[in-house]
Design a protein around this nucleic acid. Structure first.
Lengths: 232, 232
DNA sequence: CGTCCTATTGAAATTCTTCAACACTCGTGG
DNA sequence: CCACGAGTGTTGAAGAATTTCAATAGGACG
């Protein structure tokens, strides 16, 4: 049984399944590795399967007719990926890095939900968490300056990758999991503006870049401050 | 029994409760009327009660230390109001119009959820709906121009108030339920910009204003188009 | 070595905000 | 009945922030 050693087994939605359910589910799961920039599902196409993210980062995007794009969510292992109770997901999902998935037909999940209230509770909790994050990000998109947006993104990534180091004068080194173009689409900015703001944060001594992707933050307080207030 | 004639009885979360549960709930509910601009709950204050919105519009806002504000959600009757499974809601709730509420202690709901999976399912569905809306709005905040944002808001309100008239060349008359300052906070703009964009839509023949709050749209297609593409 | 992809930087153009003035409505009290 | 003030909304002009267009740099890979 592969499930026993799975990332999603405890922290993911499978954590609430009992051994029998796990066996039943595992009969229909397939694990796949998807390379960066591959599309996982499309906004208006009826969904046939849901997934657990085992590794990597998935971006959820909205697209306008003229090509403008907004990333509306980033999902990490061991998140559940999909929009339950709806034919089509309403957003595009794309691998932002190489991604490993455990997929299963939508019907399996929906059957299991009706048998297991705990499963629906777990999904409900994740939906509420995503809603909290979406609203937090609406504040960023609507009211923060380009500089604050960029700092907010770095702060969000840093605390997501290395939890419990958000406050205090902690030191952190981490990799930005996505490219500048994706950062721009996440922040509602252009690539050029993102680049300029990173340079600005660097020159202000708030971050150091080891290469374009690796960030070193000597004092997380400074980054936290930069993500809220823009005092040059 | 007051519940029998209640707005939330069928369309709201109470629609999934059986008569016994309804009786149990009704022992702890209190109905109140709250006037415009009153605060209903605060982001970081532990919540003692949840509510159903019986009438009116509630705005959910995020606040920054320096006073910048973003509306992250608008809720209408018969929506459930509150953040289940979390001490504090993380957003402020404020009456955007006069609001009528049916409130009950948080514990009552949490007890009922553990007895009734259907109740959690209903709340889960609402959370997913709010998440869909939040993401739709993230696209608007991040990628649309001021003019498109304003048109999007009007379109969203129009279709919310009068469903099933979104497309085709339909004619609609409706009231904007909130003031310009709230529109600005919803759209991530200033009051002045909102005002200018409304004037622009008016001069372009897309909307007509009967007073500052009442909008007449002769052709919803035009408004839909204006909310996506900005061809002067 | 050349090419593709990613990222940075500069200068001009555009959009939105800020600051300031003014208009309208409504209720209150002289 | 009218004047006054508060609250709400509109408009103009100057300023600031971000985008657009254009050029350049660096790394990875065949």
């Amino acid at each position: 049984m592969l499930c026993a050693s799975c990332e999603a087994r405890h922290k993911g939605i499978c954590g609430v399944l009992n051994p029998d359910q796990l066996v039943a589910l595992s009969k229909h799961t397939t694990k796949k590795t998807v390379s960066s920039d591959q599309e996982l599902f499309s906004a208006d196409v009826p969904t046939k399967s849901y997934s657990n993210i085992l590794a990597g980062v998935v971006k959820l995007t909205k697209l306008m007719a003229d090509g403008r794009q907004q990333i509306v969510g980033l999902q990490f292992a061991p998140d559940f990926l999909g929009r339950p109770f709806k034919q089509s997901p309403g957003v595009f999902a794309e691998a932002a890095t190489e991604v490993r998935l455990c997929s299963f037909p939508t019907k399996i999940l929906e059957d299991m939900i009706s048998e297991s209230p705990e499963l629906e509770h777990r999904l409900h909790e994740q939906a509420l968490k995503e809603l909290d994050e979406a609203r937090e990000w609406m504040l960023t998109l609507g009211r923060k300056t380009a500089s604050e947006k960029t700092a907010s993104f770095l702060y969000m990534i840093a605390t997501h990758i290395i939890p419990d180091k958000g406050t205090d004068g902690n030191t952190i080194r981490f990799d930005i999991p996505i490219k500048r173009a994706d950062m721009a689409d996440f922040l509602g900015l252009t690539i050029e503006t993102v680049s300029r703001q990173i340079t600005k944060l660097r020159k202000a001594g708030i971050i150091e870049l080891e290469n374009n992707r690796t960030v070193y933050v000597s004092n997380m307080n400074l980054l936290a401050k930069a993500s809220e207030v823009d005092r040059d």
